[in-house]
Design a protein around this nucleic acid. Structure first.
Lengths: 338, 338
DNA sequence: CTGAAAGCGCTTACAG
DNA sequence: CTGAAAGCGCTTACAG
């Protein structure tokens, strides 16, 4: 039982292989209704499955989209430490699947060449999530692949962008805390990097402070990494610096802050208010339930998929797509203690 | 700048394309050191990248592994609702990448034919996670693809298995609760299905009860779904049925139970003890930190990748691989209240 | 140690 | 509306 090919179908339906190809690819008006019916019948009875490698080779288009997610060298896996990635990827996958494309997912290290690997499969386009390192970016731009950068501020004429309006979102978040009477508001965050998302959020935070006439205190910016453990550590400094509220630029960090605060028997939000960012599922699971900035991650992923396919199908989506974020009020933010 | 092919290399190095092919594929002893050096030089300067579609077509092997994760029809995305999948997939991806294979990831619905899609790409093998439905299984077995089932008890001669020793793990978990003096121990779980993992855990739970001389009470088995929300609801019944401890067959459920209990001002573990299963990252983030059964998910994913590649490379791994699970003690389990 | 030839399963101009 | 031919970029026996 060798693989059934287009030739077998052609034989069975009494046409040439090329007519079969035309019918399969729905190039209408290229075959009579009867021919089409005969061919489809043959496809059904013989159980024909197109060979996509062959198609990709011949047509120079693969219907394959490469998705790269950064990972750090020391922990060699992706998705894991931040559920954010899982959710974006999930959104992308469903958007692609809905439109008949396939996803090739790869982690992307600092030095290695996973992008090359994807290129070898002739992916039609690339979606890169959270790329900020210039080096990687250079590597990406060398291939003239249609590329969508999610959550990156690196600029280039040949690249499309999708992100939330980070400065605005951070500004609103900070204002939310100010509206509850807080003035000593810490920003707990990952590393601030050029071209990264956190830089923008820091700017939004400062804008809100300025507008409220609160002096910016660099000691209140606690930059570490986007991890639960960093949040636990940051709780110490929060207390030491007498902050009454913490705006965390990731729910993962916020969850850590909550845990760190519990360990010191500090009441949330009685003593300290905590606001997150992302609205990950985990934000509902912690105690107290975390107030956070919703960035509709899943929708973002789907949109990423759709934008990239629009690019491929010549629908010229805008170079930059900005998503709105809104605050979800739960139990972790309250009025400033007297 | 057309694509540089094997021919270009051959031309530049003054050999035939087939020698280039031999060198690229490291078929040793097939070329003199000088030839090899000349070819590699040409590859470097011309920036040659093999076309994997062409290779797959010609060699009838793709180095592509299909990974399918079930999703439910109503919510059309994968990974999302259970971080467990994200972590397994992450493990698989890194194992495959380390050995030069690629992962093709797809959601798998009840009725749809994503497996067909993967087959069209000529994946060399399939890893299916959490497949229990007979229908799907039939579809899988029809293709004579090497297949590894993760967390499934469906049996078939042509399939390999990887899972934790669920009955044993559940038994030990229940015994852990019994050792703390509990006798009214609820089992909070997803739907119990033939060929599913939960069936086995239920069996282990009963074994532990029997061994301790505790009568099995069907009212104490709370079966819903593997979700946070189900956990919240289950908390009500826990109270109504006067359970002093809950063994949850997933951390996600346990997180919900914690939240539901908090809403009723029930102290954990003072009034009710809660034990989870999985040791997801979230189990550290909830309050109190969740005692749980560690099933080393990431390692499991890596192992899944390695087993499948061993199969492909003719190393004949055992048909069934069983993982051990151990209990991680944190703060959610305590002595039975007097 | 190296090569000429055929073929993997498709699609793409080009004809008719 | 349909077909014969060439080609996509590789690999695989088979020779020498």
């Amino acid at each position: 039982m060798a693989r059934v090919t287009i030739k077998d179908i052609a034989l069975a339906a009494n046409v040439s292989p090329m007519t079969v190809s035309n019918v399969i690819n729905a190039r209408a008006s290229k075959a009579s209704p009867e021919t089409i019916e005969r061919i489809n019948e043959a496809i059904r009875t013989l159980g024909y499955q197109p060979n996509l490698s062959a198609r990709a080779l011949a047509s120079n288009a693969s219907r394959l989209i490469g998705v790269v997610v950064p990972f750090t060298e020391d922990q060699n896996q992706l998705l894991l430490d931040n559920p954010f990635y899982a959710e974006v990827v999930s959104g992308i996958e469903s958007a692609l699947r809905a439109r008949g494309y396939f996803m090739m997912l790869s982690g992307l290290g600092e030095t290695s060449n996973e992008v090359d690997a994807l290129a070898q499969w002739n992916v039609d386009a690339l979606i890169a999530i959270g790329i900020y390192r210039e080096g990687l970016f250079e590597r990406l731009r060398k291939r003239h692949l249609p590329t969508l950068l999610v959550d990156s501020y690196l600029t280039d004429d040949h690249v499309h962008h999708l992100r939330v309006a980070d400065d605005q979102a951070a500004r609103r978040a900070t204002e939310h805390l100010i509206a509850h009477g807080h003035r000593r508001i810490a920003l707990v965050t990952g590393a601030v990097r050029d071209g990264g998302v956190i830089e923008q959020r820091l700017a939004g935070y400062r804008l809100a402070l300025d507008a409220a006439g609160i002096a910016f205190d660099p000691d209140l910016v606690l930059a570490g990494s986007v991890t639960f453990d960093w949040g636990i550590d940051a709780a110490d400094q929060l207390v030491a610096r007498r902050a009454t509220a913490a705006f965390c630029t990731a729910d993962l960090i916020a969850a850590g802050v909550l845990t760190g605060l519990h360990q010191r028997n500090i009441d949330i939000p009685g003593d300290v208010s905590v606001l997150g960012f992302d609205n990950l599922p985990v934000s509902r699971m912690v105690y107290p339930a975390l107030s956070t900035v919703d960035q509709t991650i899943l929708a973002k992923g789907k949109l990423a998929g759709d934008i990239v396919l629009d690019m491929l199908e010549g629908r010229k989506p805008p170079r930059e797509t900005l998503l709105d974020a809104r605050i979800i009020e739960r139990q972790s933010v309250g009025p400033v203690p007297k």
